[in-house]
């Protein structure tokens, strides 16, 4: 049997037999070389309670070439693209070793959620948010976990503000409602205000550093 197939089959079987790790693997189509991996968000992080799915492709020269992985579930994390799910993780690139497996790589992804590396970001805007205000970042990540990964509603405990099932674009962008309202009141379109404030990283201490004129200047750009 083809060495790659033998190894992948064994890895999938090992994963099925091991119930302690909570790492799951499913075949996407009939080929064992395209998989859907998933794991629970690590405890004690904003991702707790969420269920994160990862698209896995096993390259021709596996295990001598790294697995190709990207998040299917949207994740708010400095090392994951908020748009595409692309992951910046060294073992998926240069630091790959043929000794690593599907399971160990998914566990590494899980622990990446515990310990972001904002200095080697995949998503620069998210990384800036992380660096500027940790608490604001965490509440945004928690909100994303709620709406995209089936996590608990972060607002539920403080009285259930916000209607159920309706997505709050301001919270998705990690902004303050008051700030968005402030510029919307000047006559700018809400979507554009959210876009500009997110790009400018209008959060935490930055709010005092960025003048109103600067924001308006950006808002006036076509």
């Amino acid at each position: 049997m083809d060495a790659r197939l033998r190894r992948v089959n064994k890895e999938i079987a090992d994963c099925k037999n091991d119930r302690s790790s909570k790492i799951q693997l499913e075949l996407v189509d009939d080929s064992p070389f395209h998989l859907n991996g998933s794991f629970p968000g690590p405890e004690g992080t904003p991702y707790e309670g969420g269920h994160f799915e990862v698209d896995i492709r096993i390259p021709e020269s596996y295990p001598f070439q790294p697995l190709k992985m990207k998040f299917i579930t949207k994740v708010y994390h400095p090392n994951v693209s908020s748009a595409s799910g692309a992951i910046c993780l060294d073992i998926l690139k240069d630091a790959w070793s043929p000794v690593l497996t599907l399971k160990s790589t998914l566990i590494s992804l899980q622990s990446l959620l515990c310990s972001p590396e904002p200095n080697d970001p995949q998503d620069a805007e998210v990384a800036k948010h992380y660096m500027t205000s940790r608490s604001s970042f965490e509440s945004t990540a928690r909100y994303w976990t709620h709406i995209y990964a089936g996590g608990p509603d972060p607002n539920a405990k403080d009285g259930g503000k916000g209607k159920d099932g309706q997505r709050d674009e301001v919270a998705i962008a990690g902004l303050e409602k008051a700030h968005v309202n402030q510029f919307e009141a000047l006559g700018f379109e809400r979507g554009k205000v959210i876009d500009v404030l997110r790009r400018l990283n209008y959060r935490g201490v930055n709010v005092t550093k960025i003048t109103e004129d600067r924001v308006v200047e950006e808002l006036l750009k076509p």
Partner: peptide
């Protein structure tokens, strides 16, 4: 006990 299982190909 020296039976060797290669950690890469599991062979």
């Amino acid at each position: 006990e020296e039976l060797f299982v290669c950690p890469i190909c599991f062979d």
